[in-house]
Simulated scan of single mutants.
Amino acid sequence: MNSTLDGDQSSHSFCLLALGYSETVGFCLLEALVVVFLTTLIISGNIIVIFVFHCAPLLNHHTTSYFIQTMAYADLLVGVSCLVPSLSLLHYPLPMEEAMTCQVFGFVISVLKSVSMTSLACISIDRYIAITKPLTYNTLVTPWRLRLCIFLIWLYSILVFLPAFFPWGKPGYHGDVFQWCAVSWHTNLYFTLFIMVMLYAPAALIVCFTYFNIFRICQQHTKEISKRQARFNSRNEETAESQTCPDKRYAMVLFRITSVFYVLWLPYILYFLLESSTGCSSHLASFLTTWLAISNSFCNCIIYSLSNSVFQRGLKGLSGAVCTSCTSHTTAKDPYTVRWKGPLNGCCI
């Protein structure tokens, strides 16, 4: 396979799964269906999450909502960015030449997923501070500091992947839906190690350290209170746990989100490191690990809807408001029909 394709050719439809095969129609159709389907799910799911957060004030009770909404916006932008390969696979011409399209798309996706990963690490730090320093938490974690932290997250993510525009190599496989990315733009071991050291490894270590200590502290407190209350036989262990460590349940939701994130991203990271170090590559492995990782942008929505009771109430209220609005437009004839009033304060449907 020639690795020096002309980077100045215009962007055109390219099927990574069909590379090297004579029969390409089935592979191209499968790739297009996967990319378009995930793009649709990511955009629609995160729009709902952002809207529910905007309309349900109770979700803003925790300071982690700053980071969660940052993740939701980053995931939404991931979906919007995925319109680029979707349009390419659907044979829509793209205005930029292929090499530039490939680099910009790969850089943008890498930055957005870095924002999600760094936000998860910051969420774990926030919960760790809340449990270890409950009396001084409000003075340590202020809205101004949270906004500054979010700004630094975006700035740091941009700086880590900025060398992708220089001869440092490929920052990931997100752009391999374009032929120049798959054939002419190669990974570099040193750049890969740089990303691992600056982003992946620190984020994973922070998450493991903070959540391990969070659950250890909660477990210790629960046992101590249970022993004291067992003498009076007035409260059970579950009640003691809820009173001793009220943030544990919320931390569990965040822990599930973090766990799913790393489970979906681990194959991508391992393949990224393996290919960079050995030079062995597989188009199928590249495609599967990349879009498995990108699918995490939609999985967060599922975890919220199944795990967070406050989010569930906000989503039900939003659904009720939409249904009521549709019904009022189609069946209500009384101009003085009472508008629906639910938990979505300040939200007009």
Score class of each variant (00 low, 15 high):
residue 144 W to C: 07
residue 183 V to F: 03
residue 165 F to M: 13
residue 162 L to F: 15
residue 179 Q to M: 08
residue 164 A to E: 11
residue 182 A to E: 07
residue 175 G to F: 14
residue 158 I to H: 12
residue 160 V to P: 02
residue 145 R to K: 12
residue 165 F to E: 12
residue 150 I to V: 15
residue 168 W to A: 15
residue 162 L to N: 00
residue 163 P to N: 07
residue 180 W to M: 02
residue 171 P to T: 04
residue 146 L to A: 10
residue 159 L to P: 01
residue 163 P to E: 11
residue 167 P to G: 01
residue 149 C to G: 07
residue 159 L to H: 00
residue 149 C to S: 14
residue 180 W to F: 13
residue 157 S to C: 06
residue 174 H to R: 06
residue 178 F to E: 10
residue 151 F to W: 08
residue 173 Y to P: 03
residue 180 W to C: 07
residue 156 Y to H: 04
residue 157 S to L: 00
residue 178 F to T: 10
residue 182 A to C: 09
residue 162 L to W: 15
residue 153 I to K: 00
residue 160 V to Y: 04
residue 171 P to R: 06
residue 171 P to K: 08
residue 148 L to D: 08
residue 156 Y to F: 15
residue 167 P to K: 10
residue 153 I to H: 02
residue 144 W to T: 12
residue 157 S to P: 03
residue 182 A to N: 07
residue 153 I to A: 11
residue 156 Y to W: 08
residue 165 F to L: 14
residue 173 Y to S: 10
residue 163 P to D: 14
residue 157 S to V: 00
residue 167 P to V: 08
residue 155 L to Y: 10
residue 177 V to I: 12
residue 173 Y to D: 10
residue 146 L to H: 01
residue 153 I to F: 05
residue 156 Y to M: 02
residue 161 F to W: 03
residue 183 V to P: 01
residue 151 F to P: 08
residue 181 C to Y: 09
residue 155 L to S: 07
